[in-house]
Amino acid sequence: MTAISPEMTLPRPRARHNPLAPLATLAARRFQLSVRTPRELVVPLLTPILFALVIAPALKQALHTSAAYEAFVATGTIGLLIPLNTMFAGLGVIVDRDGGAQRELLAAPIPRSLLVLGNLAVAFAITALQVAVLIAAAVARGIHFNATATGVVWFVAAAALFTVGMYGVGETLASRVPKAEEYIARLPAIAIVPWFLAGSLFPISALPGFLAWFAKFLPLTHGLALVRYGLLGDSSGLHNIWSMHSATTMATLSLAVVAFFAAALMVISIRAFNRAAVR
């Protein structure tokens, strides 16, 4: 028979270890789950690679543009790769929820924001790898980049912050839609439509007046302008947004826009996750 005592001693809360240890555990779990579904790694890469290596050279030849256009489109495809990959990563949240694993994670003695950050860490790492593959493939195809050390810093900062923001979009959407089918149905509108308007294939100055004005509010427009400024030394995208003379000032302003986007979407996504996860 069980020995029942009417009272129990309060346990000492477990010793605080490295606060990042649970984050590392969550990220390692997500990474292991991701690598077991290789299509999640490969599929987002296919379309940007196709644009960078096949469509851009074809457009250059058909439209008799200069070699710089290939580089313009190759960098533009980064603006497609990041949203596609981060949105695919958001599907993991729905899989966790539908498969039941999320309940176990919610019962763990860790701040629930870490569940979002753990997923973000893996989405970020996989996106970085895919961007590196895209650039390496473009270079191998003979596309020329003109990046300085400072330029690389602008590029990395812009790509990193935009990745964080887009993952926040994916996580928020995953928390709000009940089914994977609904999530996937909304993916093109979020990941692909803005790409056509954000100066990926042509400068936003070529858009009709209202759309050009609208494009200036898209974080992707700022992100792509920064990527081109960093990798190609081309500040025309920034000028189309800000109409200033100082490239550094314009880059700083655009980076601030992307940073605000990243911070806001992270906060929103964590709140959306908490609201959806705890009934």
């Binding site: 346990p11 809360p13 477990r14 779990r29 292991q32 789950l33 077991r36 579904t37 498969g99 039941g100 694993a101 999320q102 309940r103 176990e104 019962a107 763990a108 003695p109 860790i110 701040p111």
Partner: peptide, 19 residues
């Protein structure tokens, strides 16, 4: 967090990572 740290739960539905 303290309440969760000293308890565990076996849920009605499966919650393990199958892969």
């Amino acid at each position: 967090l303290a309440a969760r740290s000293i308890s565990s739960v076996v849920f009605q539905e499966p919650v393990v990572d199958r892969t």
